[in-house]
Design a binder for these strands. Structure first.
Lengths: 338, 338
DNA sequence: CTGAAAGCGCTTACAG
DNA sequence: CTGAAAGCGCTTACAG
């Protein structure tokens, strides 16, 4: 039961393939009679145009690739990146693109090649990619947009959150509610976002006359829940000795992990220790107590990336660069809301 | 800077397109000299075969589509389905398939058509799909595998968890640690999994001589965290009045939501109320207290679906149906571990 | 061992 | 308004 082709339709409708094609595409003239007959046959045979053949001639696949660099699971279900992927999925569907989702554990060229061979119309790169991979893709001539990346290569179009401003928001909030000594858990500093968040946080505290002492900062190897828990447990002594009354972590997962450890020690949150994270992953609002955090607009990141890429693909003259996204503070139970 | 084609390679290497094609595919004869020269040119020009053209002639795209029926966000980042998607992504890459991820809010034919037009080699359907969509896809002749579905249509190959057995495990555990009166939060019963989990749970308790009374069961409209929280708060009176000492919910999100409400009321868990969920989403282990649950093997669901689909695509004579997956109990803090 | 030819399913000028 | 022809970039028999 092979799927019918345009040829089959043409024969049954008693016209040529050209005519069928014109009627389907709606461009070019066609007589009402021909149109009716062709449409009828299409309906009857449940004909679906073959997108592969179309792509072949039009040199447009209407496919975009999402390259997510992740060394470990989760990938698409990652609490933060997953939200960006979801936004991409929805916006892409709206603009009639299908999306390939790929990951690359070891940042080889493999996944890039995968996409290049499939001749995707464009690529969305999430998370930080190595410079050589970016060069490789650039060299291939496929349009791409980088989301939440950490490369500051000139010319690369990327959508990022204003992390430094976000770091300041976290500091401002904790300062306002009166915290003098804040313990800081900083994610991997090679990551632009973790670095900027820490920087903004420190800058605000500095300006407020309550600089973050070196003894109050701990650097995490990864940015996971487990790492946050581990790190808090390892440095629980200094944390208490320093009479800290709050914890700021450069992302929610670290904050949540640290918070779980504190709760297990019987620490009352926010009474004995307030906690602030960054990202606003779904779990932040669900945790008990719910986590105060700085919300990154993942929806805009994802949908904006798709719209931008679409413009790039269609060679729109003036691509509206979305600029940097402004995050916003979301106050919850971990710093005393409600 | 157009990408080179096989023709370009042929000209530069001084051979015919046929020869280049044979050398690339590795099938058919070719002289060492020709081979060296061609490979050299390929390397020099960074030639990548055009998968679209290949698909055109081979009638194989090496693409598979994942259709995830979700009315709302999250989609790929869904705590449970997202894990299946991740497993699919990894296994598909291993078997050299690219994967399209699509969702369909209103279960129209739109997303199915999308895939049909792209001529994917096969489809993986996640979550329950309407009968008519399945018929539609079947009619199109594309091989597909259903994962965690709730359709019991004959002939449909689907991979599911043994939910009834899992429900029994939850009941057995709570019974063993001595709970007499258990409050049950049951997810939407039209969903096969929620229905079976409840059924298994009840059966075990019945056999143990401690049947679940009707007054102890509450049915949820959805299976989300918010619904679990809401439902628990709405029925907190009866919960206490009935002197229940434990809660079983047919999935983790409902359990977690209920648990958050209980914690906010000052309930000590597990001392005053033990809680058991189902699925083992990542949050389950992270929550404080961590949630005892029945772990569904999402990794096997996803990877198994891909392997199965691959066999179907390649027309393997005897497709090894993976059968139903056995879940396992994971005991954590919410029922007293550690 | 190699090349010319046909064909995969479409679209797009170009004649008529 | 319509059809024949060429072509998108490959692969695959088929001659030689």
């Amino acid at each position: 039961m092979d799927n019918p082709t345009i040829k089959e339709i043409a024969i049954r409708a008693g016209v040529s393939k050209s005519t069928v094609s014109r009627i389907i595409s709606g461009k070019g003239y066609s007589s009402p009679e021909a149109r009716d007959k062709v449409l009828e046959v299409i309906e009857e045979l449940q004909y679906k145009p073959n997108a592969v053949a179309r792509a072949m001639v039009s040199q447009r696949t209407h496919n975009i690739g999402v390259l997510l660099y992740r060394q470990e699971l989760p990938i698409a279900s990652h609490p933060f990146y997953g939200k960006i992927v979801d936004a991409i999925l929805l916006e892409a569907a709206r603009l009639n693109y299908s999306v390939f989702v790929t990951t690359d554990r070891d940042m080889s060229y493999r996944s890039a090649d995968f996409m290049m061979e499939k001749r995707v119309d464009g690529l969305i790169l999430i998370s930080r990619l190595q410079q050589n991979v970016i060069d490789y893709i650039t060299n291939f001539g496929v349009p791409y947009v980088m989301v939440n990346g950490s490369t500051d290569v000139g010319g690369v179009i990327h959508i990022v959150n204003q992390d430094e401003a976000g770091g300041r928001m976290a500091a401002e909030h904790l300062t306002e509610i009166g915290h003098e000594r804040i313990f800081v858990i900083a994610g991997p500093q090679p990551h632009r976002s973790h670095h900027s968040r820490l920087k903004g946080f420190r800058a605000f505290r500095e300006e407020a006359g309550k600089p973050v002492g070196e003894a109050s900062v701990r650097f995490a190897e990864t940015s996971t829940f487990g790492e946050g828990y581990e790190l808090m447990s390892r440095h629980y002594g200094p944390f208490r000795a320093g009479r800290h009354t709050a914890v700021f972590a450069t992302n929610d997962m670290l904050a949540l992990g640290a918070m779980k450890f504190l709760l297990e020690q019987g620490t009352r949150i926010p009474e004995q220790a307030a906690v602030v994270g960054f990202d606003d992953v779904d779990f932040a609002a669900m945790f008990s107590p719910s986590l105060t955090t700085v919300r990154v607009d993942t929806w805009e990141m994802g949908t904006g990336a798709v719209r931008l890429l679409d413009e790039l693909i269609r060679h729109e003259p003036d691509v509206a660069h979305p600029g940097q996204l402004m995050p916003r503070l979301v106050v919850r139970q971990s710093t005393g809301a409600r």
